[in-house]
Each structure stands twice: as C-alpha cells, then as structure tokens.
Nucleic acid binder design. Structure first.
Lengths: 65, 65
DNA sequence: ACTCAATGTAAAATACACTTGACTTAAAGT
DNA sequence: ACTTTAAGTCAAGTGTATTTTACATTGAGT
C-alpha cells in the first residue's frame, strides 16, 4: 500500500518522530509504514486522515485485487 | 469502530456469507466486524469501499481519540 | 574529522486481524 | 414437529501491526 506520509510530513517540516508523536505511535511504526513494510491499522489510518484533514483515500493508495 | 455493513448488505439483500465471499474473507470475519468485535485491516476496508462504491469514511465511523 | 539529528533496520515480545471447524440459536417454510 | 438458512459464537491456530530496545547510516553544521 502506497502512501503520501513522507510528502505530507515534508510539507509541514515534520520529522518521523514528530509524526509518530502526533499519531501516538512509535517512530519505528511511522518509518515502517512510510517504507511500505506494513499497512497501518484502520484506526491509525483514520488518525492520519484526521491529522492531515484529508480523506484516507487521499493519503493511502490501495493496490490489492 | 461503527460501520454500516449490515445496512449496506440489507439494501442489496446479501447474506453475511455473500459479503464474505465478495470480500474474499471468512463469514466469521464479516460477522465479527459487523458485531464490532474487531476492526478490519486497512486493505479490507478498501475492499469494502470499492465493493460498495463508497469512501471508507462513509462505511466506517471512527470513534477513537 | 566530529557531532548531532534524522532516518533506516533488526530481534523479540505483545496485541489484534483473520482462518478453520464446529456448535448453537432464531426465523421461516413445509 | 421438521428442515433449512442465516446469524451468532467459541476455541485454537496463523499472520501481521505495533512496541521496545538497540544499533547502523546518512547528511548537515561546525
């Protein structure tokens, strides 16, 4: 699952640690999601959407069948 | 996390098994999600959205802090 | 060259999403 | 009453999301 977290972070000049803090998850979790190592849970995806004031589909791009 | 799966199913006259089949998950998974026992993964939420032609936020309602 | 902040990565542990198989309950039809 | 279909539930297992701790790498500034 692709996502725009890195770009959204850059636009705000946030570090991974900043984002992790805002989302209340670990820095490693943010890093792993940005690097595509795994997908966030649905609640975490909602948190991202709320944080950035966007829809989930505008942040995460589905690629599954 | 609340969701409208039961209603969306009813509108289409689908059983839980029908929906499970369309989503490629087990009937128990659909049942558990409808009953709020756990949240779907983000990929599964995307599948639901695609199946019903809606946005994730129109199907699932976030309740977290 | 040295330092420091940010990022990448890995192992082990925990929590949760999801499966399979089986059983129960409720409703409806015959 | 009997059968059938849908829905609810449970236990045990597998896979994955997330945490913690810890260490390596990269880049910028000095």
């Amino acid at each position: 699952m692709k996502n725009r977290l890195k770009v959204l972070r850059a636009e705000r000049d946030w570090t991974q640690a900043d984002l992790a803090n805002a989302l209340d998850v670990s820095r490693q979790t943010v890093n792993a999601i940005e690097k595509g190592k795994f997908d966030p849970s649905l609640p975490l995806a909602f948190k991202c959407a709320r944080l950035f004031g966007m829809r989930i589909e505008e942040i995460f791009e589905d690629e599954s069948a």
